[in-house]
């Protein structure tokens, strides 16, 4: 049952990813694959940096406040 659920999720994600080929956009993306990849990479980078900083700080704070003085 669990396997089925995981399988369905993976299949849905694969469909979403594969939809790229069938995507008809009105103002089509940059012809340079490097440029498109750069946008994806920097998106991931910019999103993860603040979350990592905040997450790290909260984790550190919890460790500090839990330690006995």
């Amino acid at each position: 049952m669990r396997l089925l659920r995981v399988g369905v999720t993976v299949a849905m994600l694969a469909v979403v990813w594969g939809a790229e080929l069938a995507y008809a956009c009105p103002a089509c993306a940059s012809p340079l694959e490097e440029n498109r990849q750069a946008f994806v990479d920097t998106t991931v980078f910019l999103t993860l940096v603040p979350l990592a900083m905040m997450g790290g700080f909260v984790w550190w704070l919890r460790r500090q406040t839990r330690q006995p003085h």
Partner: peptide, 27 residues
Amino acid sequence: MLIFVATEVMFFSGLISAFVIGKSNAL
């Protein structure tokens, strides 16, 4: 100061991201 530096980290992240995209545009 830590909060300020976190903002600065984001500022430099923005500059570096811009540079990465700028590089990718070079024909």
